[in-house]
């Protein structure tokens, strides 16, 4: 029983390979590549934070350096360091080549 082969799939109905848990291009891979780089963090409110991504955790809590707060296209605040609570994050986008 241990080395029985599964029956061949019906013609024209090839089963998909099961989704691998991780692959190149996964969120984890992206985050590894983007730490230390300039990023744009947009919150669900539409406010943007532009700066250097220091680090983040599994909740998408973010620490940033040299942060500019953009509202409606203009800078309204600057922070040397900023902690952003992850639940507010809409996306993290690379602002320089990875």
């Amino acid at each position: 029983m241990s080395d029985s082969t599964p029956p061949p799939p019906p013609a024209g109905d090839a089963p998909p390979a099961p989704a691998p848990p991780t692959h190149v291009g996964s969120p984890t891979d992206f985050l590894k590549g983007v730490v230390g780089k300039r990023v744009i963090v947009r919150l669900t409110s539409g406010v943007d934070y532009r700066g250097i991504l220091s680090c983040l955790d599994g909740y998408m809590n973010i620490a940033m350096e040299q942060t500019e707060e953009h509202v409606g296209g203009s800078v309204v605040n600057r922070y040397g360091d900023a902690f952003i609570r992850g639940n507010n994050v809409l996306y993290i986008s690379a602002a320089e080549a990875l």
Partner: peptide, 11 residues
Amino acid sequence: KLAQTLLNGNN
């Protein structure tokens, strides 16, 4: 337009 972006699945 955005370059490579991680989009939060929550929303």
